[in-house]
Simulated scan of single mutants.
Amino acid sequence: MSLFYVISNECQALLGEGGVVLWGILVVGVWLYAMIFSTWCGLQKFESKLDNEFVSDGGAKRSIVREFTVFELDHLAWVERRTPVIGVMVGVCTLGGLLGTVSGMLVTFSNMATLSTASPMEKIATGISEALVTTQAGLLMALPAAFLYALLLRRVAIVRSRAEGKMHAVIRESDMGGCAQ
């Protein structure tokens, strides 16, 4: 058997054990990481435009501040609107794992309560497997995402600070240009 075949079968078995909750966790996880990636890229775009677009043209302080404010609202606000959604999605992954744990325990107790020809261990193993798989999936999605979320928030603060510093530098250049004339 090929390695791909073995991995494929294991993944299918794992997805079957986790039930509907596992699928939900995976969907939210893919959406979460896509949002983190696109937000990080948007922040980098903002930063490169910040470095390239603003030079002193000798304008008034008020017009420079207005120009920076509009620029910031156009670009950085998009990033900052996304960060709370990312934070909520990290929590959703964690809570999805908890929901899977509860769901798996319900399956376990339901199987134990029914009369069937299956052995008691088989009844218990099915529900516990679902509980553990979904708990693990929720944590595996949420923990790295929480770390990336913290890095993203820190990066937003750094870029905002750089934007303010750039604005002040352009104002200083404008003031010096006005004094020399």
Rank of each mutant, 00 (worst) to 15 (best):
V92C: 04
K61V: 11
T117L: 12
F4W: 08
A60G: 11
A145W: 01
R155V: 01
F109E: 05
L26D: 07
A118P: 04
L43H: 05
V88K: 14
S103K: 00
L50N: 02
V55T: 09
M1W: 07
I7W: 05
E67T: 14
G177S: 14
L15E: 07
S116G: 12
E164W: 06
E17H: 11
S174N: 02
F68Q: 09
V159Y: 00
E164S: 13
I158C: 09
C93A: 07
V30G: 11
K45N: 10
R62E: 15
V6Q: 15
G104D: 09
E130D: 07
G138S: 07
G42F: 00
L148F: 05
T83H: 07
N9W: 02
F147D: 09
L153G: 10
G100E: 11
E130S: 12
P144W: 07
R155Y: 08
W78G: 05
S116N: 08
E10K: 08
S8P: 08
R62M: 15
A118I: 06
F37P: 00
A125R: 14
I64C: 01
S56W: 04
W78T: 07
G24L: 07
E173R: 08
S174P: 04
V65L: 06
G138Y: 03
G165P: 03
T134D: 07
C179N: 13
S129V: 07
G100Y: 01
V20F: 12
E173S: 13
S56Q: 08
R154H: 13
K45T: 05
E122I: 09
R162N: 10
L76I: 00
T94G: 11
A157G: 09
V79M: 02
H75R: 04
V70H: 07
V85E: 12
V88Q: 14
G91K: 04
V27R: 06
K123H: 01
V107R: 08
L22N: 01
L95I: 14
W40K: 03
A77N: 05
R172K: 08
G19W: 04
G59E: 12
G104V: 09
I7Q: 08
L43D: 11
V70G: 05
G19S: 07
S119C: 03
K49Y: 05
G104I: 05
A145F: 00
I7L: 14
Y33G: 13
E17K: 04
G18A: 03
W78V: 11
A13R: 11
L73M: 11
L76T: 04
S119V: 06
L139S: 03
V92D: 05
A60T: 15
A157D: 12
P84S: 14
R155C: 03
